[in-house]
């Protein structure tokens, strides 16, 4: 049987995490190709419903990346995101969606190495728990 390759949606902020991912690329660091990146201007821009929506539409996991606390380009976006995602994560856990599926990380523009490590860890974890079936849209009419 073919190994399960998860789909992971990465919401990365324009100023740090996305630049970090870019650096990982330009530095030719190898990391799993499972993460599909969507660039947002700030992690504070991520509506927590994005997470639910991504899981509904085919993602097996969601990774959210923002600047380190204190480094936000808009000074407080990542702090706000931290609160929002903390609550959403716990709610999803309570409903019975594995906590490994929703992850958040701080990656700065200089941390290409860290980005690759995070993606590796997240991909590994999601491979272990398998595909997301619980709230996936069936699209059968």
């Amino acid at each position: 049987m073919e190994e399960f390759e998860p789909n992971i949606i990465g919401f990365l902020c324009n100023w740090c995490s996305y630049a970090g991912a870019d650096l990982a690329g330009t530095s030719r660091i190898q990391y799993p190709p499972n993460v599909k990146i969507i660039k947002v201007m700030c992690s504070g821009r991520i509506n927590p419903m994005y997470v639910v929506n991504a899981l509904q539409q085919g993602a097996d996991g969601v990774l959210i990346g923002g600047c380190h606390p204190g480094d936000c380009h808009y000074s407080r976006g990542n702090y706000l995101a931290r609160r929002r995602i903390a609550v959403m994560k716990r709610l999803l856990e309570y409903i019975g969606i594995e906590p490994e599926r929703v992850r958040m990380t701080w990656v700065s523009a200089a941390e290409g190495r860290k980005f690759a490590e995070v993606v590796e860890e997240v991909t590994e974890d999601i491979k272990k728990i398998g595909p997301m079936k619980k709230i996936r849209r069936e699209n059968v009419w």
Partner: peptide, 16 residues
Amino acid sequence: PLFGMFKPDDPEDFIL
């Protein structure tokens, strides 16, 4: 409102 403010030391044990 809760989501309109923050504290720098909000818990972040879940962050990688």
